[in-house]
Structures are given as structure tokens and as C-alpha cells.
Design a protein around this nucleic acid. Structure first.
Lengths: 254, 254
DNA sequence: TGAATAGTGTCTATAAGACAATATCCC
DNA sequence: GGGATATTGTCTTATAGACACTATTCA
């Protein structure tokens, strides 16, 4: 990576000076993080969107985001954004992709490192009531499998939410990534509360994949994976035979 | 800073704030691209490394990299780096990960967007003879499967090459990514010349995966995938029955 | 008792791994 | 012919999908 410039540098002190000089001499892009805060409910994925107050894209809906401080890691910036703009802390996050097209922000050059965060629906609706300038929007993914592309965001009342910048592509990239990781990484559990039924886990998988999955095979795979442990408890308040509640465990048989 | 965006004037407090922030009031991190230029040969992965001429990490070996220009996309920066530092053009590249730890470069804050590039071994050795300050180093991956971690680089004469910055982690992240993508994305072909035998393709897969793969099953999967087409030609100059040469095709039946 | 979903057992089709047999080159 | 690898065919095993059947709750 990284030589600021090809120059002579006999001394380490001069090296530092030159580096500092170079840093100020040329303009640098701004670096931001944008966070796709996802959850699953009602057979669909949902994400948090904020209405833009100013130009550009005034009135459109954007992902929570913010600029990266000079002494702040990318993950620290993500945690800060999640806490400040969505009131959420301590959730699973992972880097998604870096979007750097020179004209993606009309104001100036902004390179955005996108992350996604996964949280269970109950916790998200508790933190984000979903009205005013903060909404929990339903995502409609108009492409199958790993084809990729943009997505559509829909408000609770069915109204379409117009997305700012390239955020429809960021959301689509998130869905594509999750679909690819779902059957080898334990990410489905991050979208559910601590205790869940296998039917709920299947519904989460179906929401991510955008298709139905075979119930029998899904149960077998999950139970054989060793990633789920029966709690002995059962769900309550349902009008049929209650299903057993499981919890996620990283270490089988611990 | 530069580019006075015409006819867009700040209309809100936030807009004014952001405009000021973006301009020059706060320092911005430097943004660089680092490129893992990979190939496969002799049952191992190999990558291009450059000896650092100056501090920090003087004498250690680094990935080809460079800063991203203000009007340049990330991919343009990658192509520029590949052409300037390795003499390679028009190869398959894909974004890997963005490394942004505040102290990863002791001089100043440098956020590096890492890419990997895949090229066949013949083309790489033609462009990079592999002596002097540019080497084609063998990669030894000391972890199995998708566990992840750093890697070791070894020169042709068996000498260990000490890696600069966090470049061992960048290389390890590349290998992990390739292992994950190998059996659902057509990346093995990028590491081979246009015409290849199935045994060569298998050797590439084994180099990436770091383990042997079942020959029969591999042949069946490749032939059933529709991604390889027989050319009718056979390899020459081998001291055994020559294998049929195949080529890669994105569109089966074309 | 009936509706609805949970959970179990079994059969079949498909893909992977193992392995034997034959083919084709160079020496 | 001998050595070496390519290529084909068959058998076994593991897994996914399909489907029938039983279990358990509430209305």
C-alpha cells in the first residue's frame, strides 16, 4: 500500500515530517461508514432508514451513517452511528463492501465503507418505533438467488420509500452477501431473539433467501449442525401445538 | 475544496455543517488501495511483493499499492497500481476488504481498500521476472479451511520474506475469501491460461483450498457445471497419455 | 371433536467418494 | 512392452426432497 511519495528519507524524523507534509498537501477523500441495520419479520427483511433533512436527496431515505474520525477505527465508527442514530448497541456487525464511485455523493468525494448489523425484530422495534424521520422499512428484493441488484423499500402503510445516493445498491449487496453466507455461517440466529423455534429460524432463512425452503430437510440440517440446543421450554400463546424453543450455541455439547 | 458544485447552495444547517466538514475544517484519512496479485503454480499460491525502500518497514515486503486520487474510482486506482508496479493489465480483480485500524500505518491514518487480482502463472512471470525489488513469493497458509489468519511468504530460494504493515493479514483474508468462493464462483479459471486440462484446474483448486480434492468427483462436477468446454485439442510434451484441453465459458452451449 | 401446526419415520433421487478397468501417449 | 496418467463405468454412502403418520395444543 502505502508510500506517500517517492522521496529520499535518510532519517526517521524527516520521514515523519514528510509524511505529514504530504498528508496536507493534497486533498483527501472523505471516508464514511454506512450501516445496514437489518432484521427479519413477517417473511421479509426490514431495515432502518432515516429521512434526509438537507440536500442532496432531501426527503429521500438513507441508511444511518457518519464520517470516520481520524483516531477511530471503522468498527468504532459503526458502533457510534448505531448508538446515535438507531439507539442500538452491542449487535452483530460485519463489513460489507466499500463504495467509492467518484460521483456517488454530488457534494464531494465520499468513500463509504458499508457494514451490516443484524438484530432481532423485537429489539429493533423497541429502539426504533418506526415513525417520524426514522422508519423500519420492508425490503423487496426483485431478483432471485445470487443475481444481485438493487432493492425496493416499503413503509408500513405500503408506501414506497425513495432511497438516497446508492443506498439501494448497498442494501442489495447486503442481501446478496447474506444469501451467500446463510448456509455456512451462523447469521440466521443473529436475526432472532435468544430463544426461538425451528419454524421461526426457517422463516428467517426464507426471508433472507427470498424463497421457501424444505421444512424436513431444514430441520434435519439444523439439528445435525450442532448449532442449536433444545432448552426444554416450549412456546406459549399459540393456537396449536407449541413448538420447542431452541437457543444458539457456538460450541456443540459444551 | 476543489469543485464548486454549481447551483447547489447549502439550504439547511446540516448541509452547511457537512459542507464545511467536507471542505477542509477537519483532517481526512488517506485512502489507498493495496492489490494482492495472485497466481497458482507448483501446488501453491504465489503473489507479487515489492521490497520497501523507505521507512517504515524498510526492507520488508509489501503488496503493490497506491493512494486513491480525488477523481479516480477505486477500480481505476487498482488498474493504475497493477500497470505501474507489476506491468499487468486487464486481469480479473475484485474488492476484498477495507483495513482501517488507526495505527496500521505508523506515519498517518491510512485506510486501505484491498483488492485481489487473479492471473495465470505464465503471464505473471512474463511481466514480473521475480528478482530485484519485485518478487513472486510462494504463500504458505498455516490454517485449514475457513479458519482464517495470516500467511507466510517464501522466496524462490526458500528464504522467508518478512511482510510489511498488516499485509500478512490482507493476504490471509484473500486466501480465506477465495476458499469460500471457489466452489460457487468461476475464479479457478482466472488463475489458468485460456486452455487448460482438468488436472491443472484441479491443481489450482487444491492450491487455493490447501488440501487435496477427490479427482473423480471434481471431474464430474466440472463437466456437469457447463462452465468448461472441450476444445478437441490435447496437451503436448508430456510423458504420458495427453489430457484433453478445455476452455472456460460463461455461457453453456454458446 | 376439529383445526392447525409440531415432530417422527420411511422411501426415493441425487451427488460424492472409492475403486476397478480400459485408453493413450512417450520412452 | 513398460511406465504413467487420462478417461470411463460401477458400487457404496450421505444428504435432500417428498410424503405419510402421529402428537399436542386451543377453540
Amino acid at each position: 500500500m502505502s508510500q506517500p511519495k517517492k522521496r529520499r528519507r535518510p532519517e526517521s524524523e524527516e520521514e515523519r515530517f514528510l509524511a505529514a507534509y504530504d498528508s496536507a498537501e493534497f486533498p483527501h477523500p472523505s471516508v464514511a461508514v454506512d450501516v445496514v441495520l437489518l432484521t427479519a419479520a413477517e417473511s421479509s427483511l426490514h431495515t432502518v432508514l432515516l429521512r434526509r433533512d438537507g440536500h442532496p436527496h432531501r426527503g429521500k431515505w438513507a441508511l444511518p451513517g457518519g464520517f470516520v474520525g481520524m483516531r477511530e477505527s471503522l468498527e468504532e465508527a459503526v458502533d457510534r452511528v448505531l448508538a446515535a442514530k438507531a439507539g442500538i448497541e452491542g449487535v452483530f456487525t460485519e463489513q460489507l463492501f466499500t463504495f467509492g464511485a467518484p460521483d456517488r455523493d454530488p457534494r464531494t468525494r465520499v468513500i463509504s465503507v458499508a457494514y451490516y448489523a443484524l438484530v432481532d425484530h423485537g429489539r429493533l422495534t423497541a429502539a426504533c418505533p418506526g415513525n417520524g424521520d426514522v422508519r423500519v422499512a420492508r425490503l423487496d428484493v426483485p431478483w432471485p438467488g445470487l443475481e444481485g441488484g438493487g432493492v425496493l423499500a416499503t413503509d408500513r402503510d405500503g408506501a414506497s420509500l425513495s432511497l438516497a445516493f446508492d443506498h439501494d445498491v448497498i442494501l442489495g449487496t447486503t442481501v446478496k452477501r447474506l444469501r451467500g453466507k446463510l448456509d455456512y455461517a451462523p447469521i440466521g440466529f443473529e436475526l432472532l431473539p435468544q430463544r426461538f423455534t425451528l419454524r421461526q429460524l426457517q422463516a428467517v432463512h426464507e426471508a433472507v433467501l427470498g424463497r421457501t425452503v424444505n421444512k424436513d430437510s431444514f430441520r434435519r440440517r439444523m439439528l445435525a449442525s450442532g448449532l442449536v440446543v433444545a432448552t426444554g421450554k416450549r412456546e406459549e400463546g399459540v393456537l396449536h401445538r407449541p413448538a420447542e424453543l431452541f437457543r444458539f450455541t457456538r460450541s456443540p455439547r459444551a
